[in-house]
Nucleic acid binder design. Structure first.
Lengths: 163, 163
DNA sequence: CACTAATGAGATTGGTTACTCACTTACATG
DNA sequence: CATGTAAGTGAGTAACCAATCTCATTAGTG
């Protein structure tokens, strides 16, 4: 499962063949189709997996700030998000998923992921709509910074985009 | 050029064949390879085109707020950004490009686009790093909302994500 | 031991892909 | 008219892809 994520993370849904995934996972392509109905279903399963990882991370961070005000709680969640995307794979899957959302099964999985995340964050932080929106906006900017390697570039524009 | 954008916008770099693009543009696939060296070069050209569109849009909005304070200027720019992504194609190209940034030619084009945009916005608005970062974070959230069709969904999480 | 179900590999199929190339048309300019 | 060249085509090729089908191995059960 995590090998599949690594594989898809590199070149996305369309850019990765089922053979690539099977080889990386050390199984035959045929067996892959016994484990998953088809390619969209496989990719959607990876999104669900990433969704779980994100939720776990939020849960851990939320436990340590129970009872504080929403603003401080969100700050802690943002910090934990930066931890999750540090390994770059979960992040890239979500990023690629956005581009493959026209595939129905994938689009649904992605919307499920966002829905879950928004409501969970709302419930543990008690934040307002505007605050939650800011949280996601910051997270998405972090995504892009990592995706385009702006975090390793020493230029004014890159320094501006990262905090 | 704009037909190529429409085509790639639907399924991204890896999900769109050069044949798809040629057919949509009403030319033969062979001629496409006379116009562009190879597939990555073609896609990078589209990114440059989108970069130009974005810059134009910023230029127009900036002209009408010359001399005001940075905060108000940025607000105007954000509004103009929402106009640009209204047609959804430019937006989708940029979104897909993030997922194809591992392709060297594409990654470079994308970084060029961001660099240009950041510095241009800085120069016309005089905004601080933090303000510029907020501008981009908001823009990226708008991107995602459109990409996952959250703007047409009537659910609490979707309403939270859009302003 | 015999029977069955799960787990796995390999070959195959029908279709698509990026990219090339030999060839034509149209339009110049001397 | 001749000659050069830009604009354009259609048929290829070799590789690759998702998906399925067949066959071998293992494990468990009675």
């Amino acid at each position: 499962m995590s090998t599949a994520i690594k594989t898809f993370a590199a070149r996305g849904y369309y850019g990765t063949s089922t053979m690539d995934v099977a080889t990386a996972a050390g199984i035959s392509q045929g067996y892959l189709y016994r484990l998953f109905k088809d390619k969209p279903t496989l990719f959607a399963a990876l999104i669900d997996y990433c969704s779980d990882r994100l939720r776990e991370s939020v849960a851990v961070a939320a436990a340590s700030v129970r009872g504080t005000d929403p603003e401080a709680a969100l700050a802690a969640l943002t910090a934990s998000y930066d931890d999750v995307i540090a390994d770059r794979d979960v992040l890239m899957i979500l990023l690629h998923a956005q581009g493959s959302a026209s595939e129905p099964v994938i689009g649904e999985a992605l919307r499920r992921c966002y829905a879950r995340q928004v409501e969970y964050i709302r419930s543990v932080s008690g934040a307002s709509d505007a605050q939650i929106r800011r949280y996601f906006a910051d997270a998405l900017l972090s995504n892009v910074v990592v995706a385009i390697d702006a975090d390793t570039i020493d230029a004014p524009w890159a320094r501006t985009l990262r905090a």
